[in-house]
């Protein structure tokens, strides 16, 4: 019997209940989240080994600079001869550490589907149109306040094969570097009010409701530009060992 949304929704509810009963806050998804079937064979079963070494290499990290980003990179709508189809949006926010200090001059990378819900990737077989004027890749360096800003179009929802009638809510993939490699984060930003949230095992893998909400951008009317684009704000807080949020970042 192929898996149905009902099966997956039941599993999501079971994991949610178990999380509440355990009473211990978890900010990140468990790696063994059964409703997301691809996780089954791709998570370690042994506990992670804790490293508490002030000399660990992972307390430093890679740096990027103006050689690594071009001026066109933050505008995903401006990388082709024509305008892409879809709803033009601006996504902006700050990258902070757990002490609330800005992560300065670091690389932010984004990638996303087009307005029809199709990635410019040859293995994406969703029969939705590709857009010759949209690839869906952006990069920028954070400014002195940790700020980033992208102009893009709102990505579409798309089907996937986790189970029957599985659909991903619209999202933008983000890749972030902190001042230490141990602060590395890859995640996804969602749009407020998406009706697909409850059905999606990837978003629901974050079993803490407050943590899940931190993956959802806020629509902010003052960020919208008249006759031009809608504005969303999304701040990102990088996790990491205590040492990375006690020492002054660069």
């Amino acid at each position: 019997m192929p898996l149905t949304q009902q099966d997956i929704s039941r599993e999501i509810a079971e994991r949610s209940r178990a999380y509440t009963e355990a009473g211990q806050i978890q900010h990140h998804p468990a790696r063994d989240y059964v409703p997301y079937r691809s996780s089954l064979l791709r998570h370690p079963k042994q506990p992670l080994v804790t490293v508490q070494d002030p000399e660990a290499v992972e307390l430093s990290g890679p740096v990027f600079g103006r050689t690594d980003v071009t001026e066109l990179d933050p505008d995903l709508t401006g990388q082709h001869p024509g305008e892409p189809l879809g709803e033009r949006i601006t996504v902006t926010g700050r990258v902070l550490d757990r002490d609330g200090r800005p992560v300065r001059g670091q690389l932010v990378e984004v990638w996303q589907a087009n307005a029809s819900g199709r990635y410019a990737h040859q293995r994406d077989r969703h029969p939705a149109p590709l857009d010759p004027n949209f690839t869906g890749i952006g990069r920028c360096l954070t400014d002195d306040e940790g700020g980033y800003r992208f102009t893009t179009i709102k990505p579409g929802a798309y089907p996937w094969r986790n189970h029957g009638n599985a659909w991903r809510p619209a999202h933008i993939h983000f890749s972030l570097f902190g001042n230490a490699f141990a602060q590395r984060l890859v995640t996804q930003m969602y749009f407020p009010g998406d009706p697909l949230f409850a059905y999606d095992p990837i978003l629901q893998s974050v079993t803490d409701p407050a943590a899940r909400n931190r993956l959802v951008a806020a629509y902010e009317h003052d960020l919208s530009v008249p006759e031009w684009s809608l504005g969303y704000r999304w701040d990102i807080v990088l996790d990491g060992p205590a040492a990375t949020w006690i020492e002054e970042g660069h």
Binding site: H27, H28, P29, Y36, S38, L96, D97, R98, D99, G100, E109, V110, W111, A113, Y119, A120, H121, R123, D124, T135, G136, I137, H173, S175, L185, V186, T187, Q188, I202, L203, S205, V206, D208, A210, A211, R212, R214, L215, I236, V237, L238, D239
Partner: peptide
Amino acid sequence: MLPTPSQTVGPFYGYALP
């Protein structure tokens, strides 16, 4: 501050990250 949760890199990062 509370951290932003991780999410999977997914299957389609290939045209963006490498």
